[in-house]
Design a protein around this nucleic acid. Sequence first.
DNA 1: CACCACCTAACGAACATTCATTTGCCTTGC
DNA 2: GCAAGGCAAATGAATGTTCGTTAGGTGGTG
Lengths: 242, 242
Amino acid sequence: MPPSAGRRRSEIVAAARELFSEKGYHSASMRDIAERLGLQAGTLYVHIRSKEDVLFEIVDQAADRFLEAVRQARAEAESRGAGPEEALRLAMRSHLRVVAENLDTATVFFHEWKFLDDDRRALILAKRDAYESAIRDLIIQGIESGVFRPVDPRLAGLAVLSLCNWFYQWYSPAGPQSAEDIADAFADLLLAGLLGGPQAAASDEARDGGGTGSPTGGRGRTARRGQRRSAGGSGTSSTVVQ
Amino acid sequence: MPPSAGRRRSEIVAAARELFSEKGYHSASMRDIAERLGLQAGTLYVHIRSKEDVLFEIVDQAADRFLEAVRQARAEAESRGAGPEEALRLAMRSHLRVVAENLDTATVFFHEWKFLDDDRRALILAKRDAYESAIRDLIIQGIESGVFRPVDPRLAGLAVLSLCNWFYQWYSPAGPQSAEDIADAFADLLLAGLLGGPQAAASDEARDGGGTGSPTGGRGRTARRGQRRSAGGSGTSSTVVQ
DNA sequence: CACCACCTAACGAACATTCATTTGCCTTGC
DNA sequence: GCAAGGCAAATGAATGTTCGTTAGGTGGTG
């Protein structure tokens, strides 16, 4: 009872996902998609209504997965009574895992959403805004609970999103680190910062509240994880050459 | 003596820059470009050799500007004897300034470079790799000088690039902060980290070298700047709705 | 069993449109 | 008079989509 369901339809969407990701929405033709399935171009329209329908299905799927991921991360953090520090790490983990496990979907999502018609684009933008708000809320909670410094939550949220959203541009499953490793390393960087080497100018930051907490020099904080420096590899290009 | 120079030619490239940025390379037609200049499509070919030539000119310009920016930042840091901390901030400032001042160029650069033919794409990729290496070198120098923690330089470099390269996706000149403000805030976040609020679990990181430097509680470190929290604006969408 | 009706999936050709690019002619300033 | 810049028209290929048709399967009816 297509166009709306059926195995053939999902085969078409799957083929489109790969082709849109590889060549871009406009450069991948319906004939390309059909050829990959051993069909004629016209036959695709037995199962779908239009090329843009296919694009929307892919992009909408991606948006839902991101939303689902951040909700799950938030629920997990709440259920185990984690602080904002760990909540943020969980969210970044979820996001990067979604990208890594759906690289083509994510690529199409970030690259081609603009080409949807007005209504569908608005729908996607709404979902994206919801996602970004959820991330920003994590920052705000961290600040209000006094764990994070009182930074601009908008910019801090954008920093998190930058780290997470650029990921699809360079991640390769063949690379040395898993998405989880990378998420942990990124979260650590963002939480603890680059400074703190033996020769750092010390006096860490305008620590407003004086001697609150336990100002001891202990090590092994939670923001420490997955730091297994890839051996050597100085010139390793950080980029996928498509 | 076009096609290669001339005022008309740069008008064409300028129009193409805007249109490619707004609609994408494949969706912006030569007729669109011509119309914007009050010309017929065919006339464009008096001044240019092909549409792809125009794309290459834009993308190559962008690559050169990024390279120039990081070189300038490095020179500036060296000339004023700045540490790796300030060197990194200078580089991020330069990058974000280039993007802010050439938003269309940057957008085309990041979005459309894939559509160049093999030779030109290789050329652009080489320039991009050079740029990424330069950023990674800043990280390595920071670590080797003992100012930065011994993090994975590849991932730390990618973190810097993520912050800088995602910028074009959300920056608007009409926004509350200047590119410099944002660069400073991002550099601060990456250097000092989010942690450090009054209720933070304290014990900042494995500070290996004990009491090196001046372990006083002074404030106003260099990683402190441009933190003028935008008043209110909780729901401000972080995205340009094009 | 035979027959008819109906359905889905596919083909292959054609649709109108758009695209980047080429060609031939005209104008205008030097 | 000549070259550069521009116009109008045309070229050929490619696009997404529609169309008429067909093959194969299924279910009901005589």
